[in-house]
Structure formats: C-alpha cells, structure tokens
Amino acid sequence: MVKLIAAAIGAIFCAALLWGAVQPRDAVVPDLVKKYYQHAEPAGFSFDNPIVGKFDRAQLQRGFQVYKEVCSGCHSLNRVAFRTLTDIGFSAAEVKAIAKQYDIPSLDAAGEPTTRKGLPSDNFYGPYANDDAARAANNNALPPDLSLIGKSREGGANYVHALLIGYKETPPKDWTTPDGLYFNVHFHSLNIAMPPPLNPDQVTYVDGTKATVDQMAKDVAAFLMWTAEPKLEERRRTGVGAVIFLIILTGLAYLSYARVWQSVKAKKTQV
C-alpha cells in the first residue's frame, strides 16, 4: 500500500517535471554582456600563493598612497582603523600624522555637531557623510566602500587591478554606453559610473617607483587586499604550523591504529 501511494506521488512529480521539460523554451536572446565581459586576468601578486604568499610592504604603502591621493576622493574605507597602518610598515608617529589629516565628526560641549582631528584609534572617515550624500555627489551612483572590495568581488585583487586598467575608449559597435558612464570589460554590466581614475604619473611615489597606470592599479589592488584581509599573513603562518602538526599527529595515529589492528588482521590471514 505504501508503495502504491509512493509510486502514485512519484509519478505525479515526474509528470509535472517532464511536462515542464518538454515545454518549448523562449529563443535565447544573445547576451552582449556575456559576449564582451572578461574575467580578471591574474596580475601576479606577492600574496598569490595561498600557503606561503606574503604582502609586499613597500607595495602596500605605495597602494595606500594611491588610495589616499586618488580613490579617497570618492571612496570611503570605513572599516579600517588608522592604527592598523602600522601593520604595513608605517611608524606610530606616521600613523598619528595620517590620522590627523582626517576630520572626524564629533560633538562640542554644547552638543552641537562639530569635527575633531582624527586619532590612531579612529577609523578612516569620509569623503561623504552618508550614502545619500555620496549618491547626490556622484550622479546617483554610489561609490562603494573599499574596505572589503578585495573579498567582495569574484577575482579579488586581480579584479580590482583588471577593472582599473580595463577601460576601453570606444565600446564595440553593437554596444551602447550611455553618457556619464564608461565602457569597462571587467565590470559586471560593462558600463561603469566611475570615470577612468588613473593617469600615468598621477602620483609621485616616495620610493621612486615609476607610476604607470598598471603599477598604480596593482599597488592599490594589493593595498585593498590587505584592507579586506589584514590577518592574511598571520592566518597562513598559523596554518602552516597547524597542518604540519596535524600531519605528524595523523601519522602517529595511523601507526597506533595499525598496531591495534595487527592481531585482528593476523588472525584473518591465518587460515
């Protein structure tokens, strides 16, 4: 009885599915986005290797310079505290000086909104007070906060790098990019609101590195990977120790297991 009911229910489900499967499908509209979209190419970062890769401190500092002088005009970095900049090689005094350049909202003695100088314990702030202000200033497009951009896009740092160098002057003939948007093969909709942000020699690197667009894109991509995953090096270091330890432990566990079972295995073959 159970089986008959089951078979009946199964037959109904299968019929409903097969009825759906035999329905004609709408003609596939050729998707131009799929045609022109390009996945980010690997840019070759010092931290690419998932086990031993490390950040390049000089590159992170250059990337910070690019963020500060170019990106921070529109993009916030709100989840990053100034104090953590010591991790990428800035001294405590340098961090203090960087923090001081930012005005942090505060209240005065009368409770009126005012600003105060940033402290190392503060997070990055600005450039806009809130998302609505950011949209209003950017033609209704919201420049995303960059703190987690290295982890919130497929491809991570490679994506950031590819996007920054992925602008094409003229889109293909069958693709229209509306006024105020820019054609970029690495952006999910191909039309991005951000104008090409980098020009050659836009920043003057303290360490004398030549500031090509590719170099700046790579440096800022590395920096934004660090802001997204500041514990990356600690994580990998811990991981190497943990995995080595566990391999040894597992080896010992195997030897124990083999010893324990020796008598049983021996008995089996004694026939």
Binding site: F245, L246, I248, L249, L252, A253, L255, S256, R259, Q262, S263, A266
Partner: peptide, 29 residues
Amino acid sequence: TQPHDDLTETGERRRDFIYIATGAFAAAG
C-alpha cells in the same frame, strides 16, 4: 593487551611508545 608470538619484548615497547607519542601529541595539540 595483545599476546602475540611474533611480538618481541622490543616490539611491545615500541608499540607502547607509539601509543604514548600519539597521546602526548594529541594532548599538546
């Protein structure tokens, strides 16, 4: 205990060593 003719005195001791080492490693972990 596993009484076994092919296990020598040293074999027994080695077995114990492996158990102790495994246990010690696990405890340290």
